[in-house]
Design a protein around this nucleic acid. Structure first.
Length: 194
DNA sequence: ATTTTCAAT
């Protein structure tokens, strides 16, 4: 379980963990965040596979302070000490969109690190307590925020899952739910003020 | 058309 993020282990999710957490038509009380890093070389983005991996939140049912996945992600980014003279693009695939507080923290990070761009693809929209304003703040800080479509789910499967050679198998309603969430997110991000 | 969701009614 926790060994999945221990040093020295391969940074791949098992199939069930991926599917259980990223299925977009159900609600799950935990969050997984897969990330990858690319560096700008001329006009091309070159993958830095050594910075590929995933984190998940620590819930209130576990020892110690609860912590959202995004904060672990920020910890990892800071630990890399990315060269400020270069430009990086971080892409994360997260099972819930960031909450209000995490969105603010990510926005602050982007404001302080102009050599880093952030793209977020989310499976579901976390919609509690100020989430809309949080997402707008994050977008205003330069992040691209989008909903995962079958393209992103398949990419995640290929990139972050220990799939043993098996192809990604979309679940029922994946496209319908994704489309609906895309529209909902667009409505949130296009709203002015607040 | 879509709300209970980074757990604990």
């Amino acid at each position: 379980m926790e060994a999945s993020t221990a040093p020295g282990t391969r940074c791949l999710l098992d199939e069930n963990t991926f599917t259980e957490n990223f299925m977009n038509q159900i609600s799950v009380r935990k969050t997984y965040l897969c990330y990858k890093v690319e560096i700008l070389d001329g006009d091309a983005w070159v993958p830095l596979d050594e910075y590929k991996g995933f984190v998940h939140n620590k819930g209130a049912n576990q020892p110690g302070q609860p912590c959202h996945a995004e904060l672990y992600f920020l910890d990892r980014i800071r630990s890399w000490n990315l060269d400020q003279e270069l430009h990086y693009r971080l892409t994360c695939f997260i099972s819930w969109t960031p909450c209000h507080t995490c969105a603010q923290n990510l926005a602050t990070f982007l404001g302080e690190n102009s050599h880093v761009s952030l793209r977020i693809f989310a499976s579901r929209i976390y919609s509690l307590a100020g989430y809309e304003a949080g997402l707008r703040t994050l977008q205003a800080a330069g992040a691209q925020i989008a909903i995962m479509t079958s393209k992103e789910f398949e990419h995640c499967w290929e990139t972050f899952v220990d799939h043993q050679g098996r192809p990604f198998q979309p679940w029922d309603e994946l496209e319908v739910v994704s489309q609906h969430l895309c529209e909902k997110l667009q409505a949130i991000l296009q709203t002015q003020q607040n």
